[in-house]
């Protein structure tokens, strides 16, 4: 029972970050049909902003999380305007552009910060004792922050005009245009919000792990698995996929080992692609 609860808690804390990453990734694909392979580097940039402002200048961590997320969001919107706009709807070209941006951003971080892994002072430390369970406070805090951000994202998408317009573009851009939705406004907004979600994930995880130029690769890979599971372009699918991936990894990594956990994660992706090519919820929302 104790082990089972630990597995579930570990799985759900991982899931919350996977979902944050995957939501932005799937939102960008859903609206612009661009597989943004530079998504991991947006996560990395936010983590480095936290490293510099909190670690070097001693700014307030919570304020810096907001600054980092907004800065990465603006950077994302700029990327869309300057580099991605010509490739909207052209999946292959957009993917190559995203790869080029990813490598360039990694190299830039490498030149500026070197390859060393940097640590960020933790705003929260210690554990909370829940009966026989010990839950690290910082992870619990990340899980709660992620829930709040996801809630805000849900409200934005469900109840605001911009959110409604985005969902309309996801379903059919041409029909949405006929009804007055302006894709030229929606595209940078969606890219900016997607990037901001990655920024939140990177800023929240910076004190928990270490910060280095290639730190975005793993979260990017996880986001990719999550959206394949949930359905590329599906927002509810990203949430479901994140929970499935987090729990699957936790179960297999705890009971067997991390190599088997990774193997099983990809095994599930293979099965889903064969049996349900559009993912678990891909068809119903597109």
């Amino acid at each position: 029972m104790e082990l089972a609860l630990k597995i579930v808690i570990n799985g759900l804390t991982s899931s919350s970050v996977y979902i944050l990453m995957a939501l932005g990734f799937t939102l960008i694909f859903g609206i612009m049909r661009i597989v943004n392979f530079a998504h991991g580097e947006l996560y990395m940039i936010a983590a480095f902003i936290v490293y510099v402002l909190v670690g070097s200048f001693g700014w307030n961590y919570y304020l810096v999380v907001l600054i980092a997320a907004v800065a990465v969001g603006l950077f994302g919107a700029t990327l869309e305007r300057v580099l991605f706009r010509p490739f909207i709807g052209k999946e292959l070209n957009g993917m190559i552009m995203a790869l080029a941006i990813s490598i360039t951003l990694q190299a830039t971080a490498f030149i500026i910060f070197g390859t060393d892994e940097h640590s960020v002072p933790r705003p929260i430390s210690g554990v909370i004792q829940l009966g026989f369970l010990m839950v690290p406070r910082d992870r619990l805090a990340v899980g709660l922050f992620a829930l709040v951000i996801l809630g805000a994202f849900y409200v934005f998408m469900r109840y605001t005009r911009a959110g409604l317009a985005m969902r309309a573009v996801v379903q059919d851009e041409e029909i949405a245009s006929i009804h007055g939705v302006r894709p030229r406004v929606i595209h940078p907004l969606a890219f900016g919000i997607g990037a901001m979600l990655a920024g939140f994930a990177g800023a929240l995880m910076a004190p928990i792990y270490t910060v280095y130029p290639y730190m975005g690769s793993q979260p990017m890979l996880k986001a990719f698995i999550v959206v394949i599971l949930g359905g590329l372009g599906s927002v509810p699918g990203a949430v479901l996929g994140g929970i499935i991936l987090g729990l699957t990894e936790s179960v297999f990594a705890t009971l067997i080992n991390t190599t088997v956990a990774t193997m099983v994660s990809f095994g599930i992706v293979v099965v889903i692609l064969l049996v349900m090519p559009t993912g678990l919820l891909g068809r119903s929302t597109r």
Binding site: L3, K6, I7, N10, S14, Y209, T210, S217, Q218, E249, S250, A253, T254, L255, N257, T258, T259, A261, T262
Partner: peptide
């Protein structure tokens, strides 16, 4: 563990 691993909670639980 794989060198890219950062979340050791499952391994450490075991």
């Amino acid at each position: 563990f794989e060198r890219s691993l950062k979340d050791f909670q499952p391994v450490l639980t075991r």
